[in-house]
Simulated scan of single mutants.
Amino acid sequence: MNASDSNLAPSEIFTVPEGIRLLSPEQAARLEAAFDIWRGTASRADHMRARERMRLIFLLLRHTGARLGEVLALDHDRDLDLTQGTALFGKNGNTREVPLPQGLCRELRRVLESPMAAGSQGHFLNADQGQVRRAFYARADQCGVPRELATARVLRNTRAVEMLRNGVPLAVVQSVLGQSSPELTAVLQRYSSQDASRIVRRLAMDDLRDKTSARNTFSCRVTDIVRDPVMAEIMLETAHGQRLCAVITTESLNTLALQPGTTVAASVKAPLVAVCANPAHTGGSRRNRLDATVTSVRSNPVITEINARTKFGQNVCALVSTKTAQIMGIQAGDTARFSFKALSVILNTL
């Protein structure tokens, strides 16, 4: 994957053909909340088990775009890798790996590694299709979503459109959904499962940027964790081999369920990023350092915004005082070193 692959931009225009049913973001959120409420009102252990099963089936359909039969056929011991965050769909040699969001992995692990799934021998997700449909219709009635939109087919369409609208290439969408078309596959480039995983995970990165005020966000993999009773040092590596470090509380470490191999988004607010016009500068006590080419410098009498791009295409932004910027004399085209402390890094799982 080249640098441009890590900077996928949403499609400027995307039209859904007439007759294709899909959920709006608000409807999808309401339907998911309805499953949460339904689970929370279970008064007996057998009811809780059944409702957890239906909720996990819904979440898998919602976040993978898989067919209902594929999800119900999963052997969770064999087909789900919750450490790597993947699900294996298909059979008879025609299989595909689909990336799973870390939040979904945590929910799957919470249920499948609990006594609730004991004795299921990998078949906790197996259920009757008619029973699944009735549960989905009931949740739709509960939250005011039309019944005809509470189906596996609509969830599949919704996931496909989400990916396409976020700039995921059609060939990758086909790979994730397990679709094959003789007319299309003859002319479209093939993508490896690794490429598909990296590209689809961009959805989570884009969503995170929309929800946070942090201007700098980097997709990373956890390589090592050093912890004591209070704090934890998280060593990170980007897809391009850049080494970063974050220091968080042990409580946050446990909440995020971080471990080596976990994919995370490392975010830093622009005012916490220091800039040095001399790339040879060590960055002082700041352990995270990125060299980048300045793309723009915008100032008012008090604050100056410095935007830059690394050689791998990552955007970096810093806010410094205008007086400091004037002393540095930094301008577009210059190479500068951007640095930030490990304590300034905010981590979110993808």
Results as ranks from 00 to 15, higher is better:
residue 125 L to M: 10
residue 186 A to E: 15
residue 141 D to R: 12
residue 192 S to N: 13
residue 162 E to V: 11
residue 145 V to D: 00
residue 178 G to P: 09
residue 184 L to I: 10
residue 140 A to K: 00
residue 132 V to L: 03
residue 143 C to I: 05
residue 179 Q to C: 12
residue 127 A to K: 04
residue 137 Y to I: 13
residue 115 P to F: 04
residue 160 A to C: 04
residue 129 Q to G: 14
residue 140 A to H: 00
residue 128 D to F: 02
residue 108 L to K: 01
residue 182 P to L: 04
residue 188 L to M: 07
residue 165 R to M: 13
residue 152 A to N: 02
residue 133 R to W: 04
residue 189 Q to D: 14
residue 181 S to N: 15
residue 134 R to E: 11
residue 131 Q to H: 12
residue 146 P to A: 13
residue 172 V to Y: 01
residue 141 D to C: 08
residue 132 V to K: 00
residue 146 P to K: 11
residue 146 P to H: 11
residue 181 S to W: 11
residue 191 Y to H: 14
residue 133 R to C: 01
residue 159 R to Q: 10
residue 177 L to G: 04
residue 136 F to C: 02
residue 159 R to N: 10
residue 150 A to K: 08
residue 156 R to S: 02
residue 141 D to F: 05
residue 191 Y to P: 00
residue 126 N to V: 13
residue 144 G to E: 00
residue 184 L to H: 08
residue 141 D to Y: 08
residue 148 E to F: 14
residue 138 A to Y: 01
residue 163 M to L: 14
residue 172 V to W: 01
residue 107 E to R: 14
residue 156 R to I: 02
residue 130 G to D: 08
residue 153 R to W: 11
residue 156 R to Y: 04
residue 178 G to C: 10
residue 139 R to S: 11
residue 163 M to N: 04
residue 161 V to C: 04
residue 179 Q to P: 06
residue 186 A to Q: 15
residue 149 L to F: 14
residue 163 M to V: 05
residue 119 G to R: 03
residue 164 L to M: 14
residue 128 D to Q: 08
residue 153 R to E: 15
residue 111 V to Y: 02
residue 144 G to N: 01
residue 128 D to M: 03
residue 131 Q to W: 06
residue 119 G to D: 05
residue 133 R to F: 03
residue 130 G to H: 09
residue 169 P to I: 03
residue 145 V to H: 00
residue 115 P to E: 05
residue 148 E to R: 15
residue 165 R to E: 15
residue 159 R to D: 02
residue 131 Q to L: 10
residue 159 R to W: 11
residue 148 E to N: 15
residue 134 R to K: 14
residue 120 S to H: 10
residue 130 G to V: 03
residue 125 L to H: 07
residue 134 R to Y: 10
residue 148 E to L: 13
residue 175 S to F: 06
residue 185 T to H: 14
residue 166 N to Q: 13
residue 127 A to F: 04
residue 164 L to A: 13
residue 135 A to P: 00
residue 164 L to Y: 06
residue 138 A to C: 02
residue 184 L to W: 08
residue 135 A to F: 00
residue 158 T to C: 10
residue 125 L to R: 07
residue 192 S to F: 13
residue 166 N to G: 09
residue 171 A to E: 11
residue 184 L to E: 05
residue 166 N to Y: 10
residue 190 R to N: 12
residue 161 V to I: 15
residue 121 Q to G: 06
residue 181 S to T: 10
residue 176 V to K: 01
residue 129 Q to W: 08
residue 153 R to T: 15
residue 123 H to K: 14
residue 181 S to G: 05
residue 118 A to D: 09
residue 147 R to G: 09
residue 128 D to T: 04
residue 162 E to D: 15
residue 126 N to H: 15
residue 170 L to Q: 05
residue 147 R to P: 08
residue 141 D to P: 07
residue 174 Q to I: 08
residue 114 S to Y: 03
residue 156 R to C: 01
residue 175 S to W: 03
residue 168 V to W: 00
residue 122 G to D: 07
residue 132 V to M: 01
residue 107 E to D: 15
residue 122 G to H: 06
residue 110 R to N: 09
residue 121 Q to S: 12
residue 107 E to H: 11
residue 121 Q to L: 09
residue 143 C to L: 07
residue 155 L to W: 03
residue 156 R to K: 08
residue 143 C to Y: 02
residue 127 A to L: 04
residue 152 A to P: 00
residue 155 L to P: 01
residue 130 G to E: 08
residue 166 N to F: 09
